[in-house]
Design a binder for these strands. Structure first.
Lengths: 178, 178
DNA sequence: TCCTGCTTTCAAAACGTTCTGAACGCAAAG
DNA sequence: CTTTGCGTTCAGAACGTTTTGAAAGCAGGA
């Protein structure tokens, strides 16, 4: 293969590895995704293991992860007993998968926990000594800021996922600490 | 201290640890940030080590990281020789720090590398065999999609950092593969 | 200048994560 | 029914990262 093609292949694969790390996936997952993305033909586990010089076991596990995340899909090739994979090449689809399953959970969980904290603090109100009461008030301020942040994240997330045409930044920045 | 206050303290600190991991920092950094955030008074290294039950060495290193990221600042307490830290409580400030130093670099680097790849492919054009030429074309398509993604990220990033009042989502989604 | 008390540094250890390769399971073909 | 060629699993190895604790560094006060 021409040097330049090979070079582009290498740098794309390692770039995808980097991107994967950045998003909290394993580097190998990203590299596998990259390798599949740059192949016009679906690739078998052996192909992938050979191209990335890693064990078949690792390829098997990581490709199943990619599949679960909707970043690669199995492809049947007639007359073949091997499993073939191709990468999901629609970036928006991939992003949406990740955002909607992982990030959304994370944000919602955070908001729940923060809400519980606010409840606990308010509920404790009458039983507190004066100093404790002051501290509780301080906590409420800090937690309010955290809530504002996560509410912003939630709205931004839902907006992207909802595919809305316009993100109303004014409305978002109006979420205030109370 | 009242049970509820203690409970809120614990869950906030561990939540901050989780958030830190999510953003690619170490968990301890997040916990330290959380502990400082919930203290009306600045805390010394010893205070922090004791509250989080970790070694002083670790506290020292992690607090310096927090300082570098603009997430905590040193505070001089008169008559004291200890170092005291308080957390930066303006979330937007923190987010902006992280986005502008780390994420921006990442995105710009990716765009540079992708640009170089496109150049390499175009430059190789004439020297390629028919099959290679087909492959090069395929690469260009895939890389174009990646560029679109990173360009979107770049615009979104600069918009948030620029503090613009309105994020023009129409303009952003018009970035197309060419 | 010499203590004293605190911070910083760093090598070693602990820990968690990821990878490997052999063993196993399964299904299609003969 | 047996063989063959895959994919999957998992215990152990390899690896990288984080923590610790002791030693060194540093600054202020006597």
């Amino acid at each position: 293969m021409h040097d330049n093609l090979a070079a582009v292949n290498r740098s794309t694969i390692s770039g995808m590895g980097r991107l994967a790390r950045f998003f909290g996936f394993s580097e190998v997952m990203g590299r596998l995704y990259g390798a599949a993305l740059l192949s016009p033909e679906p690739l078998s586990l052996d192909d992938l293991a050979q191209r990335l010089q890693i064990s078949k076991g690792s390829v098997s596990m990581n490709m199943r992860s990619l599949e679960r995340w909707g970043m690669a899909t199995e492809v049947w090739v007639r007359g073949e007993r091997k499993k073939y994979y191709k990468a999901e090449s629609d970036m928006w689809q991939v992003i949406r998968n990740v955002l909607s399953s992982r990030e959304r959970r994370e944000v919602n969980l955070a908001l729940e926990v923060l809400g519980e904290s606010v409840e606990k603090l308010q509920q404790a109100g009458s039983e507190l000594s004066p100093e404790e009461r002051e501290l509780a008030h301080y906590y409420l301020e800090r937690i309010g800021e955290l809530q504002a942040f996560f509410q912003f994240a939630q709205i931004a997330l839902e907006t992207v996922l909802g595919g809305a045409e316009t993100l109303d930044f004014d409305a978002i920045t109006k979420i205030e600490i109370r």
